[in-house]
């Protein structure tokens, strides 16, 4: 394969992305008429650009079959609508990443499947909670508060933590928490079994449904029908209990539920 050929292939592979994303005028025009068709006057006022610039951009988008003109109003074609919706998804994805930038940049995300990274926009409304020097337990306390009111919980628990186990057993003894689905690794299972109190209170509790996976997971995920909480490991393999993402909208719950399902079936993926 020659260098020229490779470049031609590359060029074709990324050509459309480059064409769309590198022109502010084109992207702004697509976004401006995403919800409603607009005439030149509307667009000139909204984009604060001269008519000639706007018309030039519209003409280019018309040529590419993303925009059409109907009775002096410009609107997206079906292709334009599909494209712009996916462009908004890209913007939302980057927005969601940047909003919790410290969280994503500092942790090992290797156990989060690519499918979920592609749809990280679903986490755009989550809150990033971190502990501070004046309150080292801030993240854990927020988490504790959250799960204390849950009726049903699903957890991927990748660590042996007495604090968490004691809290879960206390909740299971109470009336509020009706069921707990738990995914743990063989290693954690083995450690829990060696402690009678935890063994009886968790593993032999009829409210608990256990899934044991071979892999030592690097995701601490908790979901209920009202919230999701996610914390991760540092890249040096140590668990980070000082940073947590908490979400309570439907989209975040969908994302967390998909992650839970994928990790639940991780033994079958081998």
């Amino acid at each position: 394969m020659t260098i020229i050929k490779t470049r031609a292939e590359m060029s074709s592979e990324f050509k459309n992305v480059k064409y769309i994303l590198t022109s502010s005028m084109r992207t702004r025009l697509l976004l401006a008429i995403y919800n409603d068709s607009k005439n030149l006057d509307d667009l000139r006022k909204e984009l604060k650009k001269p008519s000639a610039t706007i018309l030039h951009g519209l003409k280019e988008l018309e040529t590419e079959n993303f925009v059409k003109k109907s009775h002096k109003y410009y609107e997206l074609t079906s292709n334009g609508y599909l494209l712009t919706t996916n462009m908004i998804k890209l913007i939302e994805n980057w927005y969601a990443i940047n909003k919790s930038r410290t969280f994503w940049d500092n942790h090992d995300i290797s156990d989060i499947p690519e499918e979920l990274i592609k749809n990280i926009y679903l986490l755009k409304n989550v809150a990033y909670i971190s502990s501070t020097t004046s309150d080292l337990s801030n993240a854990y306390n927020r988490y504790k508060q959250l799960i204390s009111n849950a009726r049903e919980l699903k957890m991927v628990l990748p660590i042996y933590s007495e604090n968490h186990f004691k809290l879960l057993i206390k909740l299971l003894k109470g009336k509020q928490l009706k069921s707990l689905e738990l995914i743990i690794s063989k290693k954690i299972l083995h450690s829990i079994k060696r402690n009678n109190y935890f063994n009886k209170g968790l593993l032999k509790n009829e409210k608990v449904k256990l899934t044991v996976v071979d892999k030592n997971l690097k995701v601490f995920l908790t979901c209920s029908n009202k919230f999701m909480a996610l914390s991760l490991f540092f890249k040096d393999n140590h668990y980070d209990d000082s940073q947590i993402l908490i979400g309570n909208d439907d989209k975040a719950l969908d994302w967390a539920s998909s992650l839970y399902k994928q990790l639940e079936g991780i033994n079958n993926d081998k």
Partner: peptide, 8 residues
């Protein structure tokens, strides 16, 4: 995510 956009 950029690659995902490209695939769409």
């Amino acid at each position: 995510t950029l690659r995902e956009f490209q695939k769409s």
